[in-house]
Amino acid sequence: MPSWATGDPVDSLSEGLEALEAYKKKDPAKVIVRFKAVGNAPIMKQNFFKVTVSNRFQAVIQFLRKELGWKAGEPLFTYINLAFSPAPDDTVANLYRSFATEGHLIVNYSTTAAWG
């Protein structure tokens, strides 16, 4: 059976650590996030934003709350593609790669649980 075995042990470990460092670097690229209100949620005048892909979804939620002037504790539910709530620690990069529609990551927001 093929395995993941490698060559020189010392070399491979330091090379591996270098590779990990490279993957840890934050990607400065930006993508377009488009917010769409659902139900009774207030509509945003400007709803396209360029967001750095290394941001977590949690940061997107916080940004949206600020834009809407939402106070702490006021309920706001967020979804991707009218379908699901991603984990708050998932990155915009991951969500964009998997779920972008016509070059936008569509984030729906609602004051009540919609697709909980």
Binding site: L20, Y23, K24
Partner: peptide, 9 residues
């Protein structure tokens, strides 16, 4: 990855 990031595609 050991100390992040988590990658999905």
């Amino acid at each position: 990855l050991p100390e992040g990031p988590v990658m999905q595609d």
